[in-house]
């Protein structure tokens, strides 16, 4: 069977609901899409620890501090799990996590737009837990039915833990919403600050994806390979349906005068975020991109002796 026939057979198998394992034959394009997606997810979990950990020393109570530390630890663990899944896919290319880290430091590995942003107040930290993790779980819940078994197995564990993260974030935001006028104002400011980033979270709809005509090819390829089952825009619509009523119920206002839901179709219209700005942010041009990359690099370099000590061929130190 030649590659074209094998690919047809593979696609037919995906269409019948068959799941793929790491060592199965797969078309190069399937492997490439998975590596791209899982590397991005894994390294975003790792980089995602950095904005939140800024609030560990400043959490308002011991309870909140412990919960936030547990969450940060979970995110680092998710990064470990996901990078392991990516490594098995990268093995035929003779690459592993060290190549991912090198690519991150050299600006060749992107991470999620939200983790390039500043976290100036405790309300921002709570908002990340509630509304950023809430967005993440919408994406990950959709990916749970994906065709690549090792990734969906990893996601099952991750989604279970994210459930705690959302409640943790909700609890912080609820306390602020029920708090003093100053606490409410702090949350409103955080929401106003984060709204454009939240609208960017799921990525551009296909029509304005980078590259113009024929764009959004990763979305389309991932749909064809049954790695994902919904488009960026479908996820964003689902997110708005879930969270806009909750935000409004707490009496906060969303900084988008055009935001409206069609009563018949349920579809939302909204002010599209600046996708050029999004491209600049994920190209490490965000307000905190350089600082966070530098912190990650410093911790990687300073931790080298630990990895050396733990490696199976011990070096004299």
């Amino acid at each position: 069977m030649d590659v074209a026939d094998r690919t047809q057979e593979f696609l037919a198998r995906l269409d019948s609901g068959h799941k793929i394992e790491a060592e199965d034959w797969m078309p190069d394009a399937y492997r490439a899409e998975l590596i791209r997606l899982i590397r991005l997810h894994g390294i975003s979990e790792i980089m995602g620890t950095l904005p939140e950990k800024e609030w560990v020393p400043r959490a308002p109570t011991l309870y909140r501090k412990l919960a936030l530390m547990a969450k940060v630890q979970d995110e680092a663990g998710h990064g470990q799990i996901l990078i392991r899944v990516a490594e098995d896919l990268m093995a035929p290319l003779h690459q592993n996590r060290e190549d991912i880290m090198a690519d991150l430091f050299a600006g060749r590995q992107k991470f999620h737009n939200v983790f390039h942003m500043p976290v100036p107040t405790w309300a921002d930290a709570g908002l990340i837990g509630w509304l950023v993790d809430g967005a993440a779980i919408i994406t990950q819940g959709m990916l749970l039915s994906g065709s690549y078994a090792p990734y969906t197995r990893a996601l099952r564990r991750i989604v279970e833990e994210e459930g705690f993260h959302i409640q943790h974030g909700e609890s912080i935001c609820m306390a602020l919403a029920e708090g003093t006028p100053r606490q409410r104002a702090m949350f409103q400011d955080a929401l106003t600050r984060w709204w454009p980033s939240l609208m960017m979270f799921f990525g551009p709809p296909e029509r304005s994806a980078p590259g113009g005509a024929g764009a959004g090819s990763h979305q389309r390829a991932n749909l064809r390979f049954r790695i994902r089952s919904k488009t960026n825009e479908e996820l964003r619509q689902r997110y708005l349906t879930k969270y806009v009523p909750r935000i409004r119920a707490l009496g906060f206002s969303i900084p988008d005068a055009t935001l409206a839901q069609d009563p018949d179709t349920g579809a939302w219209t909204y002010q599209p975020p600046d996708w050029d700005l999004w491209r600049r942010i994920i190209g490490n041009g965000g307000p905190r991109s350089a600082d966070r990359l530098e912190l990650r690099r410093m911790s990687y370099v300073e931790g080298q002796w630990v990895r050396d000590l733990l490696s199976s061929t011990r070096k004299a130190v």
Partner: peptide, 12 residues
Amino acid sequence: NPGQSGETVPHQ
């Protein structure tokens, strides 16, 4: 400096 010197890095 990981990633700055070249395309490949030594693997642990």
